[in-house]
Amino acid sequence: MEKLLRNKAISGWLMAAPLTLVLAFFLVLPIVLIVVVSFWRATEFSIIPAFVWENYEFLFGSSVTYQVFLNTFKYAAITWALTLVIGFTVAYFLAFHVRTQTWQIALFLLCTIPFWTSNIIRMISWIPFLGRNGIANSTLISWGVIDEPLEWLLFSDFAVILAFVHLYTLFMVVPIFNTMMRIDKSLIEAARDAGASGVQILWNVIIPLTKPGIMIGTIFVVTLVMGDFITVRFMSGSQSANVGRLISNDIALLAYPSAAATAVVLLLTVLIVIGILLRFVDIRREL
């Protein structure tokens, strides 16, 4: 019996070996290296191995850092709230109001297809809508709502949030839809028989049972928004900053130790957030 168990361990490890190797080389090693480099010293042209805290001292000593982190949390919170409301409503419609499975699959696929196309193109595609002479402005002017084109539509926080919602709502829809499909329909019938109204069923039955899906969606959206740098740069026209942009600016200046220090703080922040969220859901059970 013991020999069998050992065999199982060995064969398990053998099959997990390629995965472990990839993650060791392209995930663990890079993280270790970032942590190491965050203690290095930088001159204008090169980086020098050292063990100094100056990168962190500079990071925590600058008021910009706190503003940028605050901004990052702001983006994450607003995007989270919007994607949750939209994603939940869409998933609820698909799971409980679309009656045939064929339609469910078809409409679900329609929601997921954009996820498999290019994010950058999807950002670019907002230009004709939000631009100074874009569709939104010309429509509003022709309706007489405004006289002058609105300047804050493109290249603003509004545009950043809009793009985040556009890109990431899907990450809410899929896990929430997945958990909703597993809710036993007889529970809802039982609630109705017991006299619950539609709102009561939604609030007291469906939402509690959908919580794991909501948590998984939250993990996706929060981490994607917090780690983003390209959406903020493109949609704000380089006018707003988040932590990702702070890192990418340092990289552009070849200030790798400083970038690494910021990256370590960002990673810790994200992991703490995820750690808290994972207390509410067992991912392995929900798959």
Binding site: L23, F229, I251, Y256, L266
Partner: peptide
């Protein structure tokens, strides 16, 4: 297999880690 939990959390880390960290870390490596 023993160690599968660690590997599982590595997979989750790989999923949630900000992409720019991978870019920076692998580039540095």
């Amino acid at each position: 297999f023993p160690g599968s939990t660690v590997l599982f959390y590595l997979i989750i880390t790989s999923l949630v880690i900000p992409s720019i960290l991978i870019s920076l870390g692998v580039g540095l490596m």
